[in-house]
Design a protein around this nucleic acid. Structure first.
Lengths: 200, 200
DNA sequence: CGCCGAGTTGAACTGAATCAAGAAACGTGG
DNA sequence: CCACGTTTCTTGATTCAGTTCAACTCGGCG
């Protein structure tokens, strides 16, 4: 993480990152986006979306990483990981207008920008490029979920873990294994055993 | 199924259905869409997208039902069901530009309209409303996949089957159980047992 | 130093898969 | 309209991947 970036710098870097990782935005759109967005600097473990809340913002992770999770019968289940240069939202609340089943927290000291949902909707309405950005993000998420469905449905715990490593090789250095286990739909014990075996 | 609809009628009904089930389209957009679309009348079991092909069209099911499936180690795995008034595409090929891992077939005598991908892209570019339609369809698919992830990850075979029945109460009358089983990520035998038990 | 969260290891258990056999429904041609 | 083959579905016995419960190790930190 860069030491002591100004809000101004964070915003500029985020927009540059959106430009290169998703799609370019027009000048005017960038100006409006910069007005709408605020920066967030969060300490490791800070929970910035809670169960029961209505999604108020979209978040872009410039630096660090975050996870969305929910409580199923009291158990903490990770639903989604996000690393630098990606968006994260309380997906159900945002798109279905319901109270969020998810919590979202950062897993490291992180820098995000936050864009209010109302402003997102205005930007989407006003700028074709921003609308396209949202469509790209949603499409990527849809495809990632479809891949995960196939993986979880017909692969063994070992194969799912290997798949995850090919997508996020360094994830085990950044995320506690218990979160990885629940994301993969297995127990911590099974993940531990799977990690200790070198072959099938 | 309506007896002997004309192509004209099929198109008109499809557009009306898109209007009411998704989002309204402008007059001009409807005119262009009608020019781009063609009608398809398929017999039960007809396969209209094959593995290895590049997605050339988006399909709207006006009447009947269809499924997308792939072969995993020679086994036929259903990935998606679609009933009347919904779209179906070879999702990976369409959005990732790769040869389709999926086949798509109709499970009943069905009426679809088919819109070439090139025309979809033009319509998306030209009409805000059409762009919105695509975004809505993709967002709905994303949310449905997310629900399915949760279901498959932490529910028993019995619960998953019950969930499916709440979403598609009549599915067992229209779709062979083997397809439902693979969709739920269980074997045909397990589905049969699950169906015979009245409680957990 | 001792506690606490994170991860490992072991043993017993279980939900669902696999393998196998048969019953029921379906459709196609004679 | 019936007979026959095929596909669809059911039922039973066995096996297995992964869970659960429990005890233990390791590393960091107050």
């Amino acid at each position: 993480m860069e030491p002591s970036l100004s809000d101004e710098q964070i915003l500029r870097q985020s927009i540059a990152s959106i430009h290169s990782h998703f799609t370019p935005l027009t000048e005017a759109c960038v100006v409006d986006l910069a007005k709408a967005a605020t920066t967030l600097r969060l300490q490791k473990g800070e929970v910035f979306v809670r169960e029961g809340q209505f999604a108020t913002d979209v978040y872009f992770v410039l630096n660090g990483c975050a996870r969305a999770y929910y409580l199923k019968d009291g158990k903490d289940i990770t639903d989604w990981f996000v690393f630098e240069n990606d968006f994260i939202i309380a997906i159900n609340s945002f798109y279905q207008g319901i109270p969020s089943p998810h919590f979202i927290e950062v897993l490291e000291e992180s820098i995000l920008i936050s864009i209010p949902k109302t402003e997102v909707n205005k930007l989407t309405e006003k700028y074709r490029a921003f609308d396209r950005l949202e469509k790209i993000a949603v499409t990527q998420t849809m495809l990632a979920l479809q891949q995960r469905m196939v993986s979880i449905q017909f692969e063994t715990a070992y194969q799912r873990y290997q798949n995850l490593l090919t997508v996020h090789p360094a994830i085990t250095q950044r995320v506690p294994l218990k979160h990885i286990a629940s994301y993969l739909g297995i127990t911590l014990e099974t993940l531990s055993r799977v990690r200790s075996q070198k072959t099938i």
